[in-house]
């Protein structure tokens, strides 16, 4: 039960941050969903790093790891908005923009996850403590 409170609190903050970014980052030319792309890429970078440095190099309470990783970052990033936007662009006749968005999200997301994990491994090896994932 306590886990759910931590995860829910993180999810609340992540969701509101996502809403804030979506409101303040304008949609790029051609209807390209720039805000959600930035949200998903930055979330991938952060989660890769965070899940790698904790709990090995940085010892934080397991519930705080759950609140920040699964709750906040999971609630901040979104997959369903990505798929519905890709479909919407396609159905509006903007097939090229849709494909560009899909490729940028998938390739960019994986590269950001990779960068985050490698950065975490580097920091964990330098701190000398714990084991890198």
């Amino acid at each position: 039960m306590k886990d759910l409170i931590y995860v829910g609190a993180g999810g609340l903050l992540g969701t509101l941050c996502r809403y804030g970014v979506q409101k303040w980052v304008p949609t790029a030319a051609g209807g390209f969903p720039l805000a959600v792309l930035l949200i998903n890429l930055s979330g991938c970078l952060f989660l890769g790093w965070f899940f790698t440095v904790t709990p090995g190099a940085w010892r934080i309470p397991p519930r705080l790891r759950l609140a920040i990783g699964t709750g906040f970052t999971g609630g901040f990033t979104t997959f369903s908005t990505f798929t519905v936007d890709a479909l919407r662009l396609w159905s509006e006749g903007k097939a090229a923009v849709s494909l560009l968005y899909i490729l940028a999200s998938l390739l960019g997301g994986l590269l950001m996850s990779l960068a985050g994990i490698r950065l975490g491994q580097y920091m964990a090896s330098r701190s000398g403590g714990g084991t890198a994932v």
Partner: peptide
């Protein structure tokens, strides 16, 4: 839906 689905865990 935005919070139920996740992109960062998918990448990780």
């Amino acid at each position: 839906c935005g919070a139920y689905t996740t992109f960062s865990t998918f990448g990780y």
